[in-house]
């Protein structure tokens, strides 16, 4: 579904991504684990075309996307949910969703407002509330729902559990399971190992802009030294 080969990216002169390769297959939930500043968000922005890759290849559904503008990438069915949520604060919940709306797509679940409100019941109770008047957890639900309105085949979630209350984190995990149940591929970045263990099939560990480990969740669980080296604070 999504294949990234040896991408490099810069912010000004800072070499942020130094050869990142990863893959997410159809219907798979893949976690990108790493500490603050390891390059998780930059990797996602580079895949989405928001940061131009200096080198390397990104392909999605068998098609090269590393030179396409973000809107073309989104229209191919790759959804992106940014870390800072980036809700349109002057727009209502329904309007936020309408900005994300794209035509239905073969091979991907088709979302309507009502289906999304079934997945995120809180949102259904505040359809006309302005994005700026919602709690952090509600905004997190809205930003995911907004991306799903584009009927993606694969979604990238940048730190979906960050800054949320434990009960909302649980809801988030259930939502990700639901997305997987719909047949979506999910690539999520996380600092929270426990959250990954609950939702992910496979995991990559990123550190200083390079992938240090790739394997199943079980392999990571078995390797205490690896966790100690890259994930402990």
């Amino acid at each position: 579904m999504l294949a990234v080969k040896d991408i490099h990216a810069y912010y000004g002169r800072a070499h942020i991504l130094q050869g990142v390769s990863l893959e997410a297959k159809g219907g798979e939930v893949v976690a990108l684990l790493g500490r603050n500043g390891a390059g998780k968000s930059t990797a996602m922005k580079t895949i989405m075309g928001l940061v131009p890759p200096a080198r390397g290849e990104v392909s999605f559904g068998g098609r090269r996307i590393d030179r396409l503008p973000p809107y073309r990438i989104a229209r191919l069915g790759l959804g992106y949910v940014p870390e800072e949520r980036r809700i349109f604060t002057d727009l209502t919940v329904l309007e936020n969703l309408s900005v994300g709306r794209q035509p239905a797509r073969a091979g991907a679940p088709t979302w309507t407002e009502d289906r999304l409100f079934a997945l995120f019941p809180n949102l259904g109770r505040m359809r006309d509330r302005l994005g700026g008047r919602m709690s952090g957890g509600e905004q997190q639900m809205l930003t995911i729902a907004r991306t799903l309105m584009g009927n993606p085949r694969c979604v990238m979630l940048d730190e979906p559990s960050e800054g949320l209350a434990p009960i909302i984190v649980e809801q988030m995990a259930r939502s990700i399971h639901a997305l997987k149940g719909e047949g979506l591929s999910v690539l999520l970045s996380e600092q929270n190992l426990h959250f990954c263990q609950v939702v992910a099939d496979r995991v990559y560990i990123i550190e200083k802009g390079q992938i240090r480990f790739g394997g199943t969740m079980a392999e990571l669980a078995a390797d205490a030294a690896l966790r100690e080296q890259y994930l402990s604070v």
């Binding site: 809107y71 989104a74 349109f88 604060t89 727009l91 309408s98 900005v99 991306t147």
Partner: peptide, 24 residues
């Protein structure tokens, strides 16, 4: 109108509007 929603959204964060598949 949806056009209006797009305009208001782009006024706040046009990059995000692009990442949602809107041709800026």
């Amino acid at each position: 109108t949806r056009w209006g929603a797009l305009v208001r959204a782009a006024t706040q964060d046009r990059e995000m509007v692009g990442a949602l598949g809107v041709d800026q």
